[in-house]
Design a protein around this nucleic acid. Structure first.
Lengths: 193, 193
DNA sequence: CATTACAATTGACCTAGGTCAATCATAATG
DNA sequence: CATTATGATTGACCTAGGTCAATTGTAATG
């Protein structure tokens, strides 16, 4: 399995491409690897690319005014990470994107994506569907935050990301579900009994 | 200004269509009006259409386990409302969508949208861009909920939806920013002094 | 094996925001 | 103009979850 098998499979789930189109798509990507804890992006910079995770795992987060980390998204293998707010509105982002394990990625810059969309319009559909799903999930996350308790959100997290429960530290999980590490620890304790 | 001027202008901001394409698009829509408090959709039903607001205003919300209303989105004139979670994953939604003023809409069913996307592929781009923006805003909302206090969220709300501040009742605003009406009332009081 | 570093646990205490119920507008309706 | 809804305000009290700091794993590094 070479560098591009995974991403081509991912794309293939939504649209079918000729060999030339596949080659063209692949030619627009470049690979970039990161070590655990390395930053793919820092607050304040403009995000002008899509990043596809082929190995490892990545988180995006922001710092609240107390300097606490608040995780917005977690992107495992076979997912894209983007600071959409920065990407779409072309202004400096307030997100950090950081590898939480040694990670390999494929980068598609905004310009290359534009070329791609122009030359292979099927990708319009690919990105539309991708974003519609991501948006739906994001809406669900909002309703969860607005209507569930911390314990319920934790339950859901465990069901939705069973694989991550092992990979992520409690601190990360706490940050993702929106509680302090101390409180998550207490929740776990009370569940154990 | 006829029924379709607004929606065609909206579409025209993103893609340019021939007259025939415009006519075809418009032919797929049907108009539907709702009185204040009428439901466009109820919890448990499958949402299989996009709804464009040409007049009035609409909210989507869910009920938490205490039966309290939690507003997910507010859609004023020139916006689409959809229960994406239900629409995208084709399962019964948990959202209510209700008119908060007398409202006129144009409905595009899922099937018609499919036809549209097939026959006028430019609409792939329209919906991609639309969703990318909505998604970015939705991500921002999550980071706001995770990192701002109730007072800060209220500030932001006033800046982002100045027009709604007059239209919406305090209860609705409270529900949207994620606090109780009683607490919002207290916040306002302390700001007045 | 000693040490450094960092994650998890826990206790004591705190606070933002919720709950419930009563009271006070306000405005629409008979 | 009396009445009935409905929204806003407010007081008394409550609780989920946060804060801070000390303590205890645990695992990687010199």
């Amino acid at each position: 399995m070479n560098d591009h098998t995974l991403i081509l499979e991912n794309v293939g789930k939504h649209i079918s491409l000729s060999e030339e189109e596949k080659d063209y798509f692949v030619s627009l990507l470049y690979a970039k690897d990161f070590q655990r804890k390395e930053y793919l992006q820092r607050e304040g910079s403009n995000s002008n690319h899509f990043t596809f995770i082929t190995q490892g795992c990545v988180k995006s987060y922001l710092l609240d005014k107390r300097g606490e980390e608040r995780i917005l998204t977690i992107a495992p293998v076979d997912w894209w990470v983007v600071d959409y707010m920065s990407f779409v509105f072309e202004k400096p982002g307030n997100l950090f994107i950081q590898a939480i394990a040694d990670t390999s990625t494929l980068v598609l810059t905004k310009e290359k994506r534009q070329d791609l969309l122009r030359k292979v319009p099927q990708f319009e559909q690919y990105f539309r569907v991708l974003t519609e799903r991501a948006f739906a999930v994001s809406q669900q996350r909002i309703t969860d935050i607005l209507s569930l308790t911390a314990a319920e959100r934790f339950e859901k997290f465990c069901i939705q990301y069973p694989s991550l429960t092992g990979t992520l530290s409690q601190q990360q999980i706490a940050s993702f579900i929106g509680v302090t590490p101390a409180f998550l620890s207490r929740m776990l304790k009370s569940k154990r009994k």
